[in-house]
């Protein structure tokens, strides 16, 4: 309850500061005007249009990056040869800010959607790979030894011990990769897009429509909260033993 009260008080203070002229509306619009901007965007359909445009990049990008990251990360967790080959490459490429590769990806895939989706997929791939193989590593060795002592074949050890044991770590990675995807979609849309929340926020800023700009930021934070909530639900359903 307390966090909600604190939140409400902060918003109220902000509104009061705007009403009394303490905050100039051009630089910091009042909460009410942000709500009105959101309402207008909802009514003329542009809110749905921009959110949909962003989701059409996030969802395929995240899915492709996650699928590839899980495949590579789990292979590195299961096979020591894959690990020996993969760890140096992944460690070397992981620190590259993936948005820096967008111009290259535009050269490869064109200015349209594929280059943005590829940027998101690349950004998601690395944290997913790393969380998948460290999650395999964190499965207690004594469980593997137990399974060996009961004569479980190697593929059963993978399916029944390693993968379920790695699930909590993989889910923790999903939370990270979802926020990476959100970050990259905004960045990619600011560089070259007509539609999408990132493009909308950039345009609003250059037109000094700060109420529109903040409305876009609110959309992003709601989107982020919804994704986190959905992942939390999925995690509780899959990992109910915790």
């Amino acid at each position: 309850m307390l966090p909600w009260i604190v939140f409400a008080v902060l918003i109220a203070l902000w509104q009061v500061a705007s009403n009394t002229g303490l905050l100039p509306p051009l630089f910091m619009p009042s909460p009410l005007s942000v709500v009105r901007a959101l309402q207008a965007l909802w009514l003329d359909g542009s809110l749905v249009e921009h959110v949909t445009a962003s989701l059409k990049r996030i969802v395929p990008g995240w899915l492709i990056g996650t699928a590839a990251g899980l495949a590579v990360g789990l292979a590195m967790g299961i096979f020591s040869a894959a690990r020996a080959a993969g760890v140096p490459i992944v460690s070397a490429l992981f620190p590259i800010p993936k948005i820096a590769l967008l111009p290259l990806l535009i050269l490869w895939f064109g200015i349209g959607e594929p280059s943005k989706i590829a940027t998101i997929a690349l950004g998601v791939f690395f944290p997913t790979t790393i969380s998948a193989y460290t999650a395999c590593d964190s499965v207690p060795r004594n469980l593997i030894r137990m399974a060996q002592s009961f004569g479980l074949p190697a593929r059963d050890i993978v399916a029944k011990i390693l993968l379920p044991g790695a699930m909590p770590g993989i889910f923790a990675g999903f939370r990270i990769s979802a926020s990476v995807a959100l970050l990259l979609v905004v960045a990619a849309e600011m560089i070259g897009a007509q539609q999408g929340i990132g493009a909308f926020v950039l345009t609003a800023g250059s037109l000094m429509q700060t109420d529109q700009l903040l409305a876009g930021v609110v959309m992003l934070s709601i989107l982020g909260l919804l994704v986190a909530w959905g992942l939390g639900m999925l995690e509780r359903a899959v990992l109910k033993w915790r």
Partner: peptide, 25 residues
């Protein structure tokens, strides 16, 4: 067949499923 000091149970399996693990294969 071993009995382990740290039990070595799978936390995501129920008691019954932990016991069945030894037979499933």
């Amino acid at each position: 067949t071993y009995i382990f000091q740290d039990f070595a149970l799978l936390p995501w399996r129920t008691v019954e499923a932990n016991v069945a693990l030894a037979l499933e294969h």
